[in-house]
Design a protein around this nucleic acid. Structure first.
Length: 634
DNA sequence: GTGTAGGGCGCG
DNA sequence: AAAGCGCGCCCTACAC
């Protein structure tokens, strides 16, 4: 076992081995892992890497470095950094270890000229391969070894002065194992990670480091106001804590009002309850709670932004303050490469940039906080209904795809209405519906959004209400679902085929290749469903360490989402190659800062690049819409 | 005290 | 036959 082979050495032994040429054979990277102090309230998961490493409590109490044969664990100040400078390094969660390292350089703990030639991330690699992202899980799954993740646990509560606690041999052993596991995972799996995906990972990290410009005045003013709103609303509730559902239910009972099944603003059960009890004070209380939760969330996002403000930068404009450091107008953030099993990026680092409210909450517009820096405008470009189009592509519905191509101004709802609902007017569907007050577009929207992935009639009643604002009964829902399936036989066949293919892998793994694999087998990408068990009542398997039930519609959805992700990834790389680097990416959308002077032309070119057909999906019609704006979301 | 589960609020 | 899916973070309750 790779991990057992490494021998623990002292700093002197390590240095000697490197000087004699015994250590770190040239093509081999070194595994490197920092151990740092943290508590429940002071942690990297809440604060993000930059804020965490710049906090006054920051303390790196050990570094472990391994070449696979020998491992050295010591204080960062004691490590002979010259022995690994200019080499390739590997860490599990590179962004964290890199932030620690850069901070130690900044603090003078590590010499200024030490740099790796490249720094790899075994966690990103594991995520790409749909293995557990977390070190212990990945080591277990890939190497078959148990890595105790206790080192960091034991670091909690420790005095921040490294001299005062003197870490135990056991602590050091765990620190060593983390570095060894990272290196072993990298060496074992590295060849399965294609070059363009590594590039996407690096671009993702760089994008977050570059960050976004923020209107800090707007953030500050609204944060104060939101906190007042929360306090005021909380005081109006006759119990505490304000968001306690048991206390709320007790208050309902005392009032003689039956408590609702849900207190969620968007839950249909709550809406029905609120309507039935509209004269009861309980409804007022519930709405207060909803406003508190919403205001609270918004306030927390604003606080998260403030915590990630970059320490300083130089003013953009010339003038008396030019060149003098000022408080930065930018904010750093993190995006998790391959955060979803389908490959989509996910929010991370304590602040999720991918779920900012689209509409103001309590009068506060979160998107309005993100702005273009002076001299620039934001170019926001997103794909139109990309998943609906990809689903048709994967189902092989060539005829419907051809309608997209022939009718580039029409959206997916109109195409669906024309293809399967008998709509045949010459005028665009939206105009027709506006003119005649017909409901066909809403129904088409509900069908497209709700029925493509196997949703049944009972569930569709709610889906139609939430997605398209349609109120339908059970019988009507059944009719719509049946009619959809009859008129979209290719989609239904896709569900069945995927279901059968997965079930046929009973006892093994189901590997579903993505379209990008078709053209260039070197660039393989798959969805992997491990440990398939096909029983009479359904199929179960393991995805990302969790046991889940799968069915045809779900497989179709996963396949679609993953393929749409590849379309965006491909566009991101093409934009990058053309000199356009996004500052943010949200699933089907890229946001750029473009100079005011060339904004129109830049936007036109970006849209053009994003709409370029992808070689591995011939016949997939792509449509991108772009807008220029001074603030995000306008 | 810590860890976790569930409800809730957001997004594509 | 039927089943929308994919995420993250905050708050509260509760078991340990």
């Amino acid at each position: 076992m790779a991990l057992a082979r490494a021998k623990r050495v002292t700093v002197q032994e390590w240095t000697l081995a490197v000087r004699s040429g015994a250590a770190i054979p040239i093509p081999t990277p070194v595994g490197i892992d920092f151990e740092t102090f943290y508590t429940s309230s002071y942690s990297v998961s809440q604060m993000g890497n930059v804020a965490y490493t710049h906090d006054r409590r920051f303390n790196a109490w050990a570094v472990s470095v391994t070449d696979g044969a020998r491992t050295c664990v010591c204080l960062p100040a004691e490590f002979p950094w010259g022995t690994i400078a200019g080499r390739e390094w590997v860490s599990h969660n590179r962004e964290f270890d890199e932030a620690v390292f850069l901070r130690l350089v900044e603090l003078g703990t590590v010499p200024r000229d030490v740099r790796p030639v490249r720094w790899f991330c075994s966690a990103a690699l594991c995520a790409y391969l749909q293995l557990p992202r977390e070190l212990a899980g990945a080591a277990k799954a890939v190497l078959g070894v148990t890595v105790d993740k206790g080192a960091r646990e034991r670091a909690k509560g420790r005095d921040r002065e490294p001299d005062l606690f003197g870490h135990s041999a056991e602590d050091e052993a765990y620190a060593a194992t983390d570095a060894e596991a990272a290196l072993a995972l990298w060496l074992e799996l590295e060849r399965y990670w294609p070059e363009h995906e590594r590039r996407l990972f690096d671009l993702t990290c760089q994008m977050g480091h570059y960050g976004v410009a923020v209107d800090w005045g707007y953030v500050e003013a609204n944060l104060a106001e939101l906190n007042e709103t929360v306090e005021g609303l909380s005081r109006a509730l006759p119990w505490s804590p304000a968001l306690s559902i048991p206390r709320f239910e007790e208050a309902c009972v005392a009032l003689g009002t039956p408590p609702p099944r849900s207190t969620s603003a968007t839950d249909p059960e709550f809406q029905d309850w609120a309507h039935e009890n509209q004269r009861s004070e309980a409804v007022t209380w519930a709405r207060h709670m909803q406003r508190i939760r919403s205001a609270n969330r918004t306030a927390k996002v604003l606080e998260g932004m403030q915590a990630r403000r970059m320490p300083d930068d130089r003013p953009y404009s010339a003038g008396p303050t030019a060149g003098r450091p000022t408080r930065s107008r930018r904010m750093v953030y993190e995006l998790k490469y391959f955060g979803a099993s389908t490959g989509r990026w996910a929010g991370g680092g304590g602040l999720n940039m991918q779920n900012y409210n689209r509409k103001p909450a309590e009068g506060v517009d979160l998107r309005r906080c993100l702005v273009a820096p002076p001299g620039f405008v934001l170019a926001v470009v997103d794909y139109s209904q990309i998943e609906s189009r990809v689903l048709l592509f994967l189902a092989g519905d060539v005829a419907t795809l051809e309608m997209f191509r022939a009718n580039p101004e029409a959206d997916a709802y109109e195409i669906h209405a024309r293809a399967t609902m008998g709509y045949s007017e010459a005028e665009p569907l939206r105009e027709f519906c506006d003119r005649t007050a017909a409901g066909i577009r809403q129904l088409a929207k509900a069908r497209v959004l709700g029925l493509g992935f196997g949703c049944g009639a009972r569930r569709f009643v709610e889906v139609a209400k939430v997605m398209a604002g349609l109120t339908i009964g059970e019988a009507e829902s059944e009719r719509i679902v049946r009619e959809f399936r009859e008129s979209n036989p290719k989609i239904v066949t896709l569900w069945q085929n995927l279901n059968d293919a997965c079930a046929s892998r009973d006892g093994g793994n189901y590997v579903l290749p993505l379209p990008c694999t078709q053209v260039n087998p070197e660039l393989k990408r798959f969805l992997v469903y491990r440990g398939v068990l096909a029983k009479k009542d359904g199929i179960t398997c393991t995805v990302g360490g969790d046991r889940i039930t799968v069915y045809g519609g779900l497989l179709a959805e996963n396949w679609t989402q993953a393929t749409a992700r590849d379309v965006l990834a491909s566009a991101w790389l093409r934009c990058e190659a053309a000199g356009y680097r996004p500052v943010l990416s949200v699933h089907d959308e890229l946001v750029f800062e473009v100079p005011e002077a060339s904004a129109e032309e830049d936007l036109r070119r970006i849209v053009e690049i994003m709409e370029m057909p992808v070689p591995w999906a011939p016949g997939l019609p792509l449509r991108a819409d772009g807008t220029l704006c001074a603030v995000y979301g306008k």
